[in-house]
């Protein structure tokens, strides 16, 4: 009985969590593309103006970033200025929650058919590498190990802490600017 009563609240909380994580990830993608050369190299192969979307089917939360050139991303929030070029779509909010709460790695989610790719697969692979790189920076090592296939052995603590601090600072600044606007 109690479980039935609190179920809508649990669903609501899960949805809010996914929305919040998309907002953080979108801003963090923009931030990491401004500070990390490896991410810039990956992103540089995308066409200028390339729009990437991550969303929950059918009309759930979404994040949209644009490659504006020179390996830099710009976060567009949840609305795209034109049709997106690549969309990674979770089949259900529960699947997005599994990935964004680090219970399932992104690669596992693909292997488990939790997500669909609409667009060029090679760009999806590239964006997954960018997301993995971001996660290894911004998550504590123990959590990051659950999020990515293999934690990079050459990422040492000073570089990780410094990069994480710069990314979080940029994310926070972006949040404040959005609120002010």
């Amino acid at each position: 009985m109690l479980a039935k009563r609190i179920q809508p609240m649990v669903f609501q909380a899960r949805r809010l969590y996914v929305e919040l994580m998309f907002q953080v990830m979108g801003r963090a993608l923009q931030a990491v593309s401004e500070i990390d050369s490896a991410v810039q190299n990956e992103a540089d192969a995308l066409p200028d103006g390339f729009l990437f979307e991550m969303m929950v089917m059918p009309n759930g939360p979404r994040l949209i970033v644009e490659h504006t050139g020179n390996g830099r991303f710009h976060y567009h929030g949840d609305s795209a200025p034109r049709p997106v070029d690549l969309s990674i779509q979770f089949k259900h909010i529960a699947h997005a929650f599994l990935v964004l709460s680090f219970q399932e790695k992104t690669s596992e989610a693909f292997a488990n058919d939790r997500m669909l790719v609409d667009g060029d697969i090679s760009y999806a692979i590239r964006m997954t590498r960018v997301l993995n790189r971001l996660e290894t920076f911004i998550l504590p090592k123990l959590v990051a190990k659950r999020a990515v296939k293999e934690y990079p052995s050459n990422l040492h603590l000073p570089e990780k802490l410094l990069s994480a601090a710069r990314i979080y600072l940029k994310v926070a600044t972006n949040f404040v600017e959005t609120v002010r606007a």
């Binding site: 690669s107 693909f110 292997a111 697969i121 090679s122 692979i125 590239r126 993995n132 296939k149 293999e150």
Partner: peptide, 13 residues
């Protein structure tokens, strides 16, 4: 090869 779709499912990164 790095951008091939099959890369996603390789057991090792």
């Amino acid at each position: 090869a790095m951008d091939d779709g099959a890369m996603m499912f390789n057991p090792k990164e």
